[in-house]
């Protein structure tokens, strides 16, 4: 039920922009768990995260509208597999980036990516 509700915006806009939404579909990940992982890891220390009232850090870019964003960190194509890898271990995925590796399991990183795609619509 949670999954359905969280994915509702995705479904509603599916007709407007089919290609990116198709590409961002993550059936095995849970955006609700993703938000919990975001709070636990403290992503808000650097990022404005949609749906998170505090903290709204300014050291990193805002993640509002992330689903519609073209590139991850301005360099990588915005695809689920790359986003999952970047969220978990950014320096290994994109050497030279400021974002450090975060204490997330692979499953948590997938949930975080799903949350960013489901909530980050402009």
């Amino acid at each position: 039920m949670h999954t359905v509700r969280a994915l509702l915006p995705l479904l509603l806009t599916a007709g407007c922009k089919p290609p990116p939404d198709e590409a961002q579909h993550m059936p095995q990940a849970d955006p609700v768990r993703g938000k919990q992982a975001i709070v636990r890891a403290g992503c808000g220390a650097c990022h404005v995260v949609p749906g998170l009232r505090w903290p709204q850090g300014q050291s990193g870019p805002s993640l509002e509208g992330f689903a519609d964003q073209g590139l991850i960190a301005g360099r990588l194509p915005n695809r689920p597999d790359l986003l999952v890898a970047y969220v978990r271990n950014a320096p290994a995925t994109l050497p030279g980036t400021t974002m450090p590796a975060m204490p997330l399991t692979d499953g948590e990183a997938r949930d975080v990516a799903a949350y960013l795609y489901a909530s980050g619509k402009r």
């Binding site: 890891a41 403290g42 220390a45 650097c46 974002m99 450090p100």
Partner: peptide, 10 residues
Amino acid sequence: NRGTLAGWIG
């Protein structure tokens, strides 16, 4: 963690 440390310093 390293991420929140960086965010706090920044």
